[in-house]
Amino acid sequence: MSDNPPVPPLPPQPAEEAARTGGAPATTPTAAAYDPSADPDNTGVPTSLHGEVDDIGRGFVSALFDISFRTFITRRLASVFYLVGLIAIAIGFIVYLVSGIISGVSYLVNGNVGAGLSLIVATLILVPVIAMFSVIALRFVIEGVVALIAIAENTERTAENTGTSPR
């Protein structure tokens, strides 16, 4: 038995054209048949989709000042936001770890051994755990926003192919 389930072929014509012709295929197919051997990532999604590649050609600055919000820049900036967030979490990790250890040592020097050891142990346990949860939360938020943008882009493409306008 095969590891990969069979992938259905792409329709030979857009939905709008099929609705006009009553489902009869056009004389010249508008899309090539799906070839699994030519699929680079084995997802079944054709790589010849238009939209995001066309938007990159428009330029980032023009997309940034698109007041109609027809071009999304979030997907392009997601990795930048993630990197900046990771840097901020790393800085916070270092600051809280060092300040917690210094505070614990100062309690030890001043004669409060119990408070000093408790603070050092709590710092060594809690700061890395909180930093890891912060990285996970950052990733969840950015993935959620990117997924919403992808849904919006796919909905817009679907509406274009069916002849309706989402906006």
Rank of each mutant, 00 (worst) to 15 (best):
F72R: 02
P29S: 13
P36C: 08
D3N: 09
I73D: 00
R139L: 11
I94A: 15
F140N: 12
G144L: 11
N161I: 08
D41K: 09
E143S: 13
F69D: 14
G116T: 05
L49C: 12
M132C: 14
Y82N: 10
A90R: 03
N112A: 11
G114I: 06
R167G: 11
G23C: 07
E16Q: 11
L83D: 09
F93C: 01
T28Q: 12
L77C: 08
T158I: 11
D41S: 12
P12I: 03
S118I: 06
A90E: 09
V61F: 14
R157T: 02
I89T: 02
I73R: 03
A31H: 13
G51Y: 02
I87V: 15
A131H: 04
L10K: 02
A159G: 10
I130L: 15
E156P: 00
A147F: 11
I89Q: 01
G116K: 05
Q13W: 02
N4C: 10
A24L: 12
A15L: 09
P9H: 13
P6F: 06
H50P: 00
I91Y: 04
D41I: 09
T162Q: 04
G92M: 02
I151Y: 10
L10P: 00
A152Q: 03
V45A: 10
E143R: 14
D55C: 01
N4F: 10
L148C: 10
G85L: 03
N110K: 14
I91H: 04
N112L: 07
D55E: 10
P9M: 09
I94E: 02
R20H: 05
S103K: 04
I102Y: 07
S2N: 10
A63R: 01
